[in-house]
Amino acid sequence: MQVQIDAYVDHLRHERRYSPHTVSSYQRDLERLRSYAEDRSVSSWPQLQLADLRQALALFHRQGLSSKSLQRWLSAIRRFYDYLIRENLAEHNPANGLSAPKAPKKLPMTLDVDLAKQLLDQAPEDELDARDTAMAELFYSSGIRLAELAGLDMQDLDLEEGIARVLGKGRKQRIVPVGSAARDALLQWYDVRRDMTSAEETAVFINRHGQRLSHRSIQLRLKQWAQVRGYFGRLHPHLFRHSFASHLLESSGDLRAVQEMLGHADIATTQIYTHLNFQHLAQVYDRAHPRARKRNGKVQADQSGSGDD
């Protein structure tokens, strides 16, 4: 069974060109099922049936796996069996018809517009702060993911046109906007970058040794960047992405455009920001509308008039 897992992992890594993180997740999920099967004297993948997977799902749930983790696990199993069927190593997919417990939907956190402005409007304190400000501006301006920013090369940015070409999930390329504030911050960083690395280095964002910044370094530097500006909440690249999407949708109402800029394959993924904006409007309503305010658990009616029109 391990032989088939290894072959599938190679397929994901070299043919599908999945990211190392995604490949690692698939491998971990499949080996969890292999271990479960071998404990029950199952020696080949075709032997597993729907009832076996249902029992495995129930066991993993009792062991504390979240609904989201179980959904990911089940998705990995389905795709693995699809691969086995294509390779004539199995005749049916026992994961079809099986569903994981639904996870409660969590609305993404976002920065308030004024707080985002407060953080981004502060002038950089030194050369590396100029780099970190450029990263923050680009995250907020373009809504790109951490891996997309880390992978940016100089040739991917056209500051005159105000666009960036990024390589998203599934190695799909898309073009995203780069706003004027982000362009100004990038130009300031370019002046610094020129003296920090060789002409052969293609990465936009580099460390003090002139090499491409790692994902982890970007996360840590953004956290430090925010703290220098007096923000000690949990600031991370996806917070800027969520804020970009929410603020843009709130201003434009164009869900399809936001979907395209975020690189979402399914518009249902983008619709979470519609729920977020409705939640914001509901909070405004609760604070401001006279018929929404409550006192001692009861709706407080407006008694300022006689009731006549």
Rank of each mutant, 00 (worst) to 15 (best):
V284Y: 08
R208D: 07
A292H: 04
L48Y: 01
D112F: 03
E160Q: 15
K223D: 11
L167Q: 04
A282L: 06
W73A: 13
Q118K: 08
D286R: 15
K223C: 08
Y83G: 07
N88W: 07
H242E: 13
K169C: 09
Q71E: 12
I144A: 05
Q211A: 14
G233V: 08
K294N: 11
N93R: 03
L74R: 03
G64I: 02
N88Y: 13
R295D: 10
R34G: 06
I144T: 12
S251P: 02
K102M: 07
S141R: 02
Y81Q: 08
L111V: 11
D112T: 06
M135N: 05
L84D: 06
P237W: 10
E161S: 15
A265H: 03
H61Y: 14
I144P: 03
M109D: 14
R17W: 14
F232V: 11
W225R: 01
A100R: 05
N96H: 14
L235S: 01
V113I: 12
L235F: 11
D195T: 12
L222K: 01
G263S: 07
A103D: 12
I77N: 07
E31V: 10
A150Y: 06
V258Q: 03
R16E: 13
L248H: 13
L235D: 06
D302E: 11
R78C: 09
R221D: 03
L222S: 05
Q283T: 09
A288K: 04
E161R: 15
D286M: 09
V228E: 13
V42W: 09
F232L: 13
Y140E: 06
A134F: 06
K106Y: 08
A103W: 04
R174H: 07
G233E: 13
L98S: 04
H236S: 08
Q303F: 14
A58P: 01
G162V: 06
Q211V: 09
A150D: 07
R221A: 14
Q4H: 12
D308V: 14
L149D: 00
P237M: 14
P124R: 13
H264L: 03
R287N: 12
Q303Y: 15
Y83R: 01
F80N: 01
A37H: 00
A185F: 00
L33S: 03
Y26K: 02
D132A: 10
R171C: 02
D132T: 11
S19D: 05
L220T: 11
H247M: 00
D309P: 11
L50T: 14
Y140R: 00
A265K: 04
I163W: 15
A185E: 05
L157N: 05
R79H: 14
V9G: 03
Q63H: 10
V178K: 09
R291T: 08
A292N: 07
V3M: 13
K172E: 08
M1R: 02
P94A: 07
Q271K: 12
L276F: 04
E137G: 04
N93S: 04
L249M: 04
P290D: 13
L157D: 08
P124D: 08
F232M: 09
A90Y: 00
G170L: 00
E137V: 12
W189M: 03
W225A: 05
I144W: 03
L50E: 15
M1K: 04
P101E: 04
L74M: 15
T202D: 13
L119D: 02
R256G: 07
G263R: 00
A116C: 03
Q224R: 14
Q173W: 08
N88H: 10
A7Q: 15
S306N: 05
S67W: 07
R72M: 09
M1H: 13
R86T: 06
S246I: 11
F139W: 01
